[in-house]
Design a protein around this nucleic acid. Structure first.
Lengths: 343, 343
DNA sequence: GTGAAAGCGCTAACAA
DNA sequence: TTGTTAGCGCTTTCAC
């Protein structure tokens, strides 16, 4: 009569799902070997590889990335912080970021601050709690507290859509000041003199339009009429804005909008009032969204390679996560003025 | 002379960050007590709560949600699967879903299939690997393999943007067939007889337009001209489509588009060709995006409460995750026809 | 109300 | 190439 071991008291914990342990047992190898077969197949004999692959298929095993991440301190999770994805400006960036990350085996976590800088800190805490392998920020980070936390956490950070001499870590963007200057020069070269601006009230577009106004002033043009609308910008606020602008100064001959959507609103309102674009009023947008080229007249605008920002951000994070050296921490992707019919 | 303990051989593992252990030690309590102070503060004496809160502040501790999730088998992560966020149709849903989840302490993970059903399965595997507390699907899940996996994983699933008699688990959407019928009736009531359709080639819009055509036929109207364009739909494809439609039949007097963007393209093209909307051509969109009301003429369209879908999906998942009973597993949020100027 | 012990499922480190 | 051991940082279970 053999002394039986006590029954392995089935614990109430755990999800009950198939674990790597089960797979290893079925394949007749140690768990770590099964782990290697899945993660670094070429460190394992073909024989073992076959047995493990087999066991995985038979059990329907799905790896638990959370557990792996805890053990390896690599979560393969990347967080993106945007004001909102509703304004289609960042959409392209988020989309291409997501794609590039997915290809490299990383998952994207989305966080929206809603243009309220106050929420930035709270969101950051939530994010750090997940120990992401990287954080992609839209714009530069403002709060000192936030910067401190991020640095302390040692998480790679990419700031985007802006340029600053003092990046937190890595940066991919362009100069908003340069955009403002370039558009002012562009409109002036086309003989426009009474310039106006309709801009969302976020920091970056303000910076663009400050530069725009400064450049206009320097060129001896009359004071630029400026109207700020709440971010995110909409077609509706564009329509309203042109009305107000015209009420203040019926003689304006060019409007620089901080988004293509705003520009669509301005053009529509102009049309509704019987103003012809560009003859009586030049309209410039910003972003070069998909629809810009197909408006009637086609919208002149500033093109930002939004997808390139996302891809570069992904490259930054993945390189850092895989321990590859990042040569250049700051990438200026520039912009270009798209000269279509509306200006 | 005291015998010193050997130095606690500093392990090379771990992130080196402050852990709950450190906090507990500083507060002079057991780790589990510190855990309770943070998660269920009212199960702990005010005294202890104070000491722990204090220690957290002094150390700058940020909880490791991954570790917590592993121990409790609750990741507080929810995955959303969308064809693409670029088409602004799902944007609202994703946005409100994200917001509602964030409020409840859950994080959203984004996965894009890109309208390729083949990628659905691969994406699903990646997602299940993270052990999310729920999955929100856009549309209904097709692959039998995918359904099997999801069921096996025991993860709550919400299918959205559609209605089916055989939901996988929970469902919030509306009937695309009803939409098609309603729009056909609407146009017919306005005296339109030569109907046309421009639709994205995804399953749901096809269903809408099949119903539309069937209803038109039943009403004795002439055969509906139909043109499918690749999803995601764009303004450009709308412009092109009207051109083709007109070439095939110059006498059409109404176009039903499968998205507002498409409708914008159709309206723009009509205008470019000197056709007046709605006098000569009625245009109907779908989605009621923000800009629809502000177009010239204002766009008649079908309104879907996209945000409500997101919120309901969040409620479903959170209720399930917190163990609350879900009374109704299927919610039909309906739709409404917005009767503006373009039709 | 508080704590000790024992994992959650996986992988780093070291050894064979 | 493969295995043993010892965690990753937290929470469940059960006892006080």
């Amino acid at each position: 009569m053999s002394v039986e071991a006590p029954p392995p008291r089935r614990s109430r914990r755990g999800s009950g799902a198939v674990t790597l342990h089960d797979v290893a047992k079925l394949a007749g190898v140690a768990p770590i070997t099964a782990s290697r077969a899945l993660n670094t197949p070429n460190q394992v004999s073909p024989e073992v590889l076959r047995k493990v692959t087999d066991a995985v298929a038979r059990t329907g095993y799905v790896r638990n990335v959370l557990a792996g991440g805890l053990a390896s301190t690599r979560s393969r999770l990347v967080a993106a912080v945007v004001p909102t994805i509703a304004g289609p400006v960042f959409l392209q960036t988020v989309q291409s970021l997501n794609e590039a990350l997915a290809e490299a085996g990383y998952q994207l976590m989305l966080g929206q601050t809603g243009y309220a800088e106050a929420r930035e800190d709270a969101l950051l805490e939530t994010i750090i709690g997940r120990r992401p392998d990287g954080i992609v920020l839209t714009g530069i980070l403002h709060s000192a507290e936030g910067r401190r936390r991020l640095l302390a956490a040692g998480i790679p950070v990419v700031e985007t859509w802006d340029l600053t001499p003092t990046p937190l870590d890595m940066l991919v963007g362009f100069s908003h000041t340069d955009v403002g200057r370039a558009v002012a020069a562009f409109l002036q070269a086309r003989g426009r003199r009474r310039l106006a601006v309709v801009a969302g009230d976020d920091e970056r577009s303000k910076r663009r339009h400050d530069a725009f106004c400064t450049a206009a002033r320097a060129a001896g043009l009359p004071e630029v009429r400026t109207l700020y609308v709440p971010a995110p910008t909409t077609m509706r606020s564009g329509r309203r804005a042109l009305g107000e602008l015209l009420a203040a100064d019926p003689a304006i001959d060019a409007v620089f909008c901080s988004s293509d959507l705003l520009a669509l609103g301005v053009m529509t309102e102009a049309q509704a009032r019987g103003l012809t674009v560009p003859a009586q009023l030049a309209v410039m947008g910003f972003g070069d969204l998909e629809f810009a080229a197909d408006l009637q007249p086609a919208l002149s605008t500033v093109r930002i390679d939004s997808s390139a920002i996302g891809r570069q951000a992904a490259r930054f994070i993945v390189d850092r996560a895989e321990g590859r050296p990042v040569a250049e921490r700051v990438v200026d992707i520039g912009f270009s003025i798209v000269d279509r019919a509306s200006a």
